[in-house]
Design a binder for these strands. Structure first.
Lengths: 339, 339
DNA sequence: CTGAAAGCGCTTACAG
DNA sequence: CTGAAAGCGCTTACAG
């Protein structure tokens, strides 16, 4: 490799060095077939020798970043999202797309943020990892690109350019209730996000309550909390005092479940002998906790690969928006016992 | 807000709409002071009305992305890194820099990757979160921008444009050994990354061994593992069989510690009664595990804010490379007991 | 303080 | 198959 100093090389330099025009270099760079094998080889040799990389900003400006997918992640240290992000990255790069990841705070409006970034980056499409339905309702109309909402169902929203891949959260909530009732629990508390919303928490709550009423049980007590250990810890303490005689907790995520377990242990309760805890998501940590967290596992791999595939279909073939619903699968664990 | 259809607006459109030249719009956009408050206000009003955002690719091309910092993260679902990333993002945006995060596999050469991305993105500087010293030795010379290695010490490498912020890993290893010896443990096994390297694992191992020899103990048995639950689990089982009579384990990260605890519990051992486990890093999970993980906590907040501040000083004021070493702080936890 | 013009490093019709 | 030229959306001397 020839050492260079100072300014990076441009396509012009390569053209000069290879003794040809810039358009020819550009063709070699982009694997065009309007170029002879011979010159392509010669140019590539020069590129290799001088270790040239094209200026991506200039490229993206011309091509409108057509090979980039924007990934908007709600919240930054979410153990459920991190393997999804990883798999989305892998799946899209094998489909020939770069991923630009952007984490945003849960309080921010992810849709507005994405809209701004779209004119900034000009990606070919957007994947939202989680999101607040109200934000979509309010500002999604502004986004004209193919988009996917991963992890929540966007069917009700009815946008032409918004597909979604998610677990059937209502059914998941029902399954949670059935697992608990079948083990003899009658008084169950609930720990989760906004239960009144259209979003995953609300749907799971709705499913849970539907089983309660079928089985003649009361509407369960609940306590709102964020998807963090510390928030779950506090909420679990509050719930324990509010919901007298509670023998089990349905936590809307495994992170919440782990925080709740820690809280109950600190209060001198045994899990699951005194109180059972059932999580949601099926993150890796649930299998390494003590006790292991019983959970409704989401098919992470399917969610990520479908998200990418559906988005690419929309981008490349103009496919219409569609909504895929998968099933969360119950997985037992030491945190949930029989009464 | 006025609705627009089709193509996004350009600076030309705004100029036309505001009745001025493009250079004036550009000045308003960039907060130049060569522009009257009056016109600036008028232009900003138009920009707001039409919800215009400049094309970032074109901007970055002209400005060589001078306001972007590239953040290279080794490994993707690292619980120790995720709060660091978050804080680095916050600190740099308040210093006026955008962060472009890129996760890479642990097997990849992060330095070569960064070098390629530098000509692709033309950032103002690079922050490496973790990294393999061998890769730096081999290929860092190629990178001419101001860089920071966060989480490992780069002093020995002696590059003029590479600073570092890290914990004193050798001292951390010594502290770990002292805490264990002081509690009566004599036979300790070690679980961690490449112990023969110059990197953090190697230094901690070196510090640990130095205390062993001071106290007349043997060189401890060790088992190599990656920084994941599953790898730690397997390694802990292997270590248990290799290191007969072991009463404690020093794990090079809290993730490894959690995986090891799970393994020992599954083998019917009690933690800490039969075997103590000491971690490293001080991630949030360590305080929510059961038992809580005793650990050497890294000052995450200091590491992130110093990394950004030092890099910005190098970029803006041409500050020289420097190397800051912080202290890991012991934090007790139920995973470590007395013998 | 403002605008017309040049130019950043690419890609892509267009003409050969 | 190849090259000269136009143009992408910005920023920044330069001249007023």
């Amino acid at each position: 490799m020839i050492q260079t100093t100072g300014e990076p090389l441009t396509i012009k330099d390569i053209a000069r060095l290879a003794g040809c025009g810039v358009s020819t270099v550009s063709r070699a760079l982009n694997g065009s077939n309007e170029i002879s094998e011979q010159t392509k080889e010669r140019i590539n040799e020069v590129i290799r020798q001088y270790n040239y990389t094209p200026n991506g900003n200039a490229r993206r400006m011309r091509r409108s970043a057509e090979k980039t997918i924007l990934l908007i992640v709600n919240g930054s240290s979410n153990l459920f999202f991190s393997p999804l992000i990883e798999q989305i990255q892998i799946a899209s790069s094998s489909a020939g797309f770069q991923i630009a990841v952007n984490h945003i705070d849960e309080q921010e409006d992810e849709v507005q943020f994405a809209s701004r970034l779209c004119t900034e980056l000009r990606p070919a499409g957007v994947i939202f990892l989680g999101g607040d339905m109200r934000n979509f309702k309010r500002s999604f109309a502004r986004i004209k690109l193919p988009c996917i909402l991963s992890t929540a169902n966007a069917e009700e929203l009815g946008f032409e350019n918004l597909s979604s891949v998610s677990v059937d959260d209502y059914e998941g909530g029902r399954a949670a209730a059935e697992q608990l009732f079948d083990r003899g629990h009658k008084k169950v508390g609930i720990l989760g996000g906004d239960l009144s919303s259209y979003g995953p928490s609300g749907l799971r709550y709705g499913g849970f309550c539907s089983v309660c009423s079928e089985r003649g049980a009361d509407i369960p007590d609940s306590e709102l909390c964020a998807y963090t250990f510390s928030s779950a810890y506090e909420a679990a303490v509050a719930l324990y005092h509010k919901c007298k005689g509670m023998t089990a907790v349905f936590a809307m995520s495994d992170i919440i479940a782990v925080g709740a377990v820690r809280a109950f242990l600190d209060m001198g309760k045994r899990v699951p002998e005194d109180i059972s805890v059932l999580g949601f998501d099926g993150i890796e940590l649930s299998e390494y906790s003590n006790p292991r967290i019983a959970t409704l596992a989401q098919p992470i791999h399917q969610i990520s690969s479908l998200s990418v595939r559906m988005l690419v279909n929309m981008i490349e073939d103009g496919a219409e928006a569609s909504h895929v619903t998968l099933r969360a699968q119950f997985r037992s664990g030491g945190s949930m016992g029989r009464i």
